[in-house]
Design a protein around this nucleic acid. Sequence first.
RNA 1: GCCCCUGUGGCGGAAUUGGUAGACGCGACAGACUCAAAAUCUGUUUCCCGCAAGGGAGUGCCUGUUCGAGUCAGGCCAGGGGCACCA
Length: 854
Amino acid sequence: MSRYNAKEFEAKWQKRWEDANCFAVQEEPGREKYYVLEMFPYPSGKIHMGHVRNYTIGDVIARYKRAKGFNVLHPMGWDAFGLPAENAAMRRGIHPARWTYDNIATMRGQLKLMGLSIDWDREIATCHPGYYAQQQKLFAAFMRAGLVYRRESEVNWDPVDHTVLANEQVIDGRGWRSGALIERRKLAQWFFSITSFSDELLDALDDLERWPEKVRLMQRNWIGRSEGATIRFEIIGRDDPLTVFTTRPDTLFGASFCALSPSHPLAAEIAAQNPDAQDFIDACNRLGTSEEAIEKAEKQGFDTGLTVRHPFRPDQTLPVYIANFVLMEYGSGAIFGCPAHDQRDLDFARKYGLPVIPVVLPEGEDAAAFTIGDEAYTGDGLAINSEFLDGLGVEAAKRTAIDRLAADGRGESTIQYRLRDWGISRQRYWGCPIPVVHCPTCGAVPVPDDQLPVVLPEDVTFDKPGNPLAHHPTWKHTRCPKCGGAAERDTDTMDTFVDSAWYFARFCSPRAEEPMTREAVDYWLPVDQYIGGVEHAILHLLYARFFTRALAKVGQVAVQEPFAGLFTQGMVCHETYKDQDGNWLYPEEIEKLADGTARRIEGQGPVTVGRSESMSKSKNNVVDPEAIIGTYGADTARWFMLSDSPPERDMEWTDAGVEGAWRFTQRLWRLVIENLDHMAAAGTPVPATLGGPTLDMRRAVHKTVQAFGDDIEKFRFNRAVARIHEIANTLSGFQPAKDDGRFVLREACELLVRLIGPMMPHLAEELWERLGYQDFLADQPWPEAEAALVADAQVVLAVQVNGKKRATVSLPMDAPEDQAQALALAEPAVQRAMDGKAARKVIVVKNRIVNVVV
RNA sequence: GCCCCUGUGGCGGAAUUGGUAGACGCGACAGACUCAAAAUCUGUUUCCCGCAAGGGAGUGCCUGUUCGAGUCAGGCCAGGGGCACCA
């Protein structure tokens, strides 16, 4: 029995593709392009199954589009800056660059084993000066365009490690590494003014039709547009007003207090005079920023003694508190509280004995009897206790209130966004240096383009806590580009999300001496199909969208959106096992038993078979792709990735599943190889005069060609795989009648091989060669189904009686309805079900169904 | 708390978008080949009643719309995801 030797043939075709530089592309004006991009990997060490799934999906699309005649750009690179490299440096004394480039070499080799149709000439790594120099130019360009600014911002400061931590690195108020209590500190940091595109970024989501609705929704929520009003309350005894944002100006008559964020400038001003206020603010700052801490935190306030005048009732004043639940980052950092119609305000009011005045009456309630208990009423209703607003619905009352505020000069309608500007300064070494020099006389001066790149010094040490760049003896000392005086470099590096916010553009002209050439980006952008995990649904994609708009603004690109199509793939999961103490066990440590339970191979104690979870080292449930490829070959791994589970859903990795895929790989091989002697010579056309089983076989194959292409276009790879199984089953049962059958057999095998090309490229190339062809299958055009063979001659209709299926009838395609009806009524099973009664009504849906109503 | 998604055999999942539920695969069972095993091939496999022909039930639960509902509407239940003191 002939066996497909995956190892041998995969190496053979990978070499041939590489020698022929098969997948390198250039701009070809006038030829339609297609840009396929998978999210580039972080070089963490080895590729994991998530990568295999991601790049398999991308490669299927790339190879399919290529066969469809597109000029396909399919590049690969490395998101190579980041903290793990520094951690490795600290733990093992390896330089981050060394660690990173070693990992890249390993992972590049692994990716090449997958047989991806990638233009490796365009490979980039964000940690290479050739890349980040261009990024520094973009930073400078954005600065000139007013899209970058510097301001003080609060950070989580670890006083032991002397470093800034991300929110995720703060656990229960302590640093994840040092365990030290985290302080909130103010640091001068650089920001990208992403909020200047808030409305554009929101509105453009509507036009991203080839994005998952889910992702668009998440972005909408993240941008978080709210319509409301700005209100200026007069502070008694002061000239400056207290500015407040609200979405509920209709509830102004229910206001019983105002509250400031502990970070509000007015709060600071008060605290300067009042030690108690300062204590309160300090207490608020000590409170953790973790979600848990926030959830549990009780509403607390400090009465400042200040009062403000109610904008509609000159005689009424409201107390002003500093409150722990008011955020400085949203709105103006101050609120008015209407306890009856906001839960937080209600909690606060109950605690401090403030009035609770209902001003919106729910439908069906009696105004005199309506009171608020423990729950604020946030629904619709008519205004009460609200003077000139009384009787109005919520929306009308909002408009009326805003009109009155505007007329009095005390406010106006305002749109607020939840989105905040993007702070990009990181006090880290392994990132793109921020190309700015701080001069005592000139201030922050961008490094001119001709002095870029600002290169990371290689001789750094990680033995001290804090930022190695700041510790470096000489690196930061420089001259001011403007005045030439002694100055210091900014020792911060950029958030690594900056690196990945424009790499798709760099791929268009990866070796250019400028960030990108217009010629290249105008041809290739936007990315036609972007593929990656949902975990990047918000930040990465939003940053890339922002960057593209910023690039357009500074004249680098013509497009406004980077990714015309987005596909988010699911995770690769695997069963988990734990011992009696809750420790995760490796699959190699256990043995599955027939009843679904498991036991330890060595040692004692029960094993709990847990649910399937995303592969992760900590859960001991990772399967190494290189081992799988070594055992079964890349094609089998790719095939399994595409089988069974729809690509957007999480899939479960099982040994049985890969083995099934492997068996099928072998089966396809035999199906073609063992038929080689029975088929017509290569290049002979199929005679037009066919009938019977040979015609049926042809019809089946051409239908598969048609349906398979549709499935790929729609990302329904699991369905496409099932169709290949079906046609393989049909072909296995096909007994080639001597003469015509030889032609049909050849046609069927050739089409089959061409269809699987994007999914199992090595197997397909080898079979293509065995079928007698010299040229790469990868260069062949996509097969087209013959329309006449796709259309059915006969159709089988279901016949229902009162909606229940009782029989089926076969009749010619598009047969008239009365023929279908007559045939249906003649069925014995139908007659039986009608039980002698006359049909009251017969519904005939052409080529579909007949339903007899009795 | 708010927003969103998903519930179909033992399992992953199909279902022409309102028209024959369970394609295809995995697993399981039976058989062929084999001294035997592996590999391969051929069957069976939603559940219940029945030897069978056949019949009944069935897409998380309940109501509804319809000649006809996995698909549409309303209300529940369960699981998952996103955001989260956003005024």
